[in-house]
Amino acid sequence: MANDTIKLEEGIGSVRIADEVVSIIAGMAATEVDGIAGMSGGLVGGIAEILGKKNLAKGVKVEVGETEAAVDLYIIVKFGVRIPDVALTVQEKVKTAIESMTGLSVVEVNVHVQGVGFPDTEVREEEVRVR
């Protein structure tokens, strides 16, 4: 992991940004979009959540070069929202967030819709008719 960092050479020193930081920025920007039910982390992510470990980079894969980055997001959308509209909003927000916070140029943000989140069905309690 220590090798997967972006190094920005400045006059007075260098700035190292870990790949995971870019993933977290992308993940947080994506989950803020209206219409996103959550991020899809697969089996490992699911087990980690059950164990209580919060993973802000869940469902995010990044490829980072010297000056550019490419992001793949695995999302779950809410039932009833228009998928292309939500996906395009996610692409814009993630790109803006990463470029403004890290200075990297985002070449592509690929969105993979892995599932649909349905609202919880209400549970009606049966009335007790006898005593």
């Binding site: 992001v71 292309p84 395009l88 943000v109 690929n110 969105v111 993979h112 892995q114």
Partner: peptide, 25 residues
Amino acid sequence: ELLVIQGAAGQVNVSLTAVRDMAER
């Protein structure tokens, strides 16, 4: 997955699992 949009910002893909769940619902 199904490729839904191929735009300048990247691709948008929808998994067959998501489509199946939607149809069932």
